Simulated assay, not measured.
Amino acid sequence: MRVGLVRTVGVATALYGAAVTARPDLLARPSGLTDPAGRVAPATGICLRPLALRDMASGLAMATAPEGPALRTAVLVRIAADFGDAALLGATLPDRDKRIKAAAVSVGWGALSVAGLLLS
């Protein structure tokens, strides 16, 4: 396992999760989940914050878990979340271009975690 890589991905994920928790528009806008004026509906923000908290928690686990089974489990959770996001966002976002971009970003982050897990 490339511990430095998975810890870096964990820190980046945790920071992004914290940012989206504070400002759901950081995820809503690139995902096309805004009204025509670019505003995020309160209900959308409510739905995005738990995802952001999940990212923050899984990222912190990757950044701080002791090497061995605990870190491997944290990385596997992150991989599952990223590939799950790719599948769901890629299938359900309202705009085709946004679906493709969201899926690509999610797969990219998941691939970084896979690489960190498998490379020695």
Rank of each mutant, 00 (worst) to 15 (best):
A43H: 06
A111T: 11
L15A: 14
L5F: 06
A14C: 08
L51M: 14
G45A: 03
M1I: 15
W109M: 13
A70C: 15
L119K: 03
L26Y: 13
T8N: 10
D95E: 05
L51T: 02
R23N: 12
T21C: 02
T8E: 13
G110L: 05
P66M: 13
A52Y: 08
D82M: 04
Y16D: 03
G110N: 05
T64Q: 01
V40M: 02
P24R: 09
A43K: 02
F83G: 05
I100T: 04
G10F: 05
T44I: 14
L27Y: 08
P42I: 11
L26P: 02
P69S: 11
L48C: 00
L112G: 01
L33C: 01
A18P: 07
G116K: 08
A14I: 04
D55A: 09
R99A: 01
L53F: 06
A87K: 11
G45H: 07
K98D: 00
M62S: 01
K98Y: 09
A81P: 07
D95Q: 06
V107F: 04
V105L: 06
P36D: 13
L15Y: 10
V20N: 02
S120Q: 15
G110V: 07
R39V: 06
L53N: 01
A37M: 07
A57E: 05
A111C: 14
V107H: 03
D35P: 02
L71G: 06
P50L: 14
G68H: 10
T44W: 12
V40W: 05
E67T: 15
R99I: 07
A41I: 12
D35A: 08
A41N: 13
V105A: 06
I79Y: 11
A111F: 13
R96H: 08
V75I: 13
V40S: 03
G4H: 10
A57R: 12
A102D: 00
G17V: 09
L71W: 03
G38S: 10
S31Y: 15
R96E: 08
R7L: 10
K101R: 15
T8Q: 14
P30A: 06
T73R: 15
T73G: 15
